[in-house]
Design a protein around this nucleic acid. Sequence first.
DNA 1: ATGCAACATCGACCGTCATCGATAAAGGAG
DNA 2: CTCCTTTATCGATGACGGTCGATGTTGCAT
Lengths: 123, 123
Amino acid sequence: MATAKISPCCSPVLHARLGKDDAAELATTFRALADPGRLRLLSFIAAQPGAEACVCYLTGPSGLSQPTVSHHLKVLNDAGLLEREKRGTWVYYRIVPARLEAVREALAPVPSEKKRVARGHER
Amino acid sequence: MATAKISPCCSPVLHARLGKDDAAELATTFRALADPGRLRLLSFIAAQPGAEACVCYLTGPSGLSQPTVSHHLKVLNDAGLLEREKRGTWVYYRIVPARLEAVREALAPVPSEKKRVARGHER
DNA sequence: ATGCAACATCGACCGTCATCGATAAAGGAG
DNA sequence: CTCCTTTATCGATGACGGTCGATGTTGCAT
């Protein structure tokens, strides 16, 4: 998959009127972030060296059962916010910074005035 | 100090381990953004001059019933993403850019990996 | 006063989701 | 092979949330 650039994920909210499908896609991403347990898991993983963590490291601190943690990690993985890597018996989840950045971009202020000035080609 | 100005809203996800309270608060904000209808309403309002819109302007384009639109606007208002102003018979909702910016900040990358390492002994 | 328009609230229905125990699947270690 | 550990999946349950019709509330006009 052509990883690279910020991602094909999110149409910006404030730049133009969102279509139903764009809105649905963006909402899915936000829904993945709309749970306290998942946000804590993200922060726990981010706090680890390399921004990656083994599942067995997460069940304790989160205070959630192992099935629940596994479920949340799957949701975050499906949303593209985490990537999964199996190493022997253990599974490591790693934060995907580009995806987080894409979500931030979706909330970016309107580009309007600056862009028109920068262009400067119309009259 | 342009950095710490933003808002009292959101503890950053990637900077440190989130406590349960911080996570719950942040999750509430994301939950407000986790619905296609609300995202579209935000974009519709943002597209209007002054980033504000009358409710009567929103019911049509959104394709939602008036009670549903009213409900969504209340959720966004409670989340601090919209502010409400009554003008005569009409009610105008306006986007709160600072709040959007605060959400973006909550997803900002870690301050600096090297700074943390350079500090040496912490746990 | 009456009538009308804009918005909010209420009540109910129904789908979605978070949670956990039980169980399955995959991979070492002996 | 058997046993144990790690993680994922299944199934059930309880709670939350989006939706809309009906109704209430507010404000303007006549």
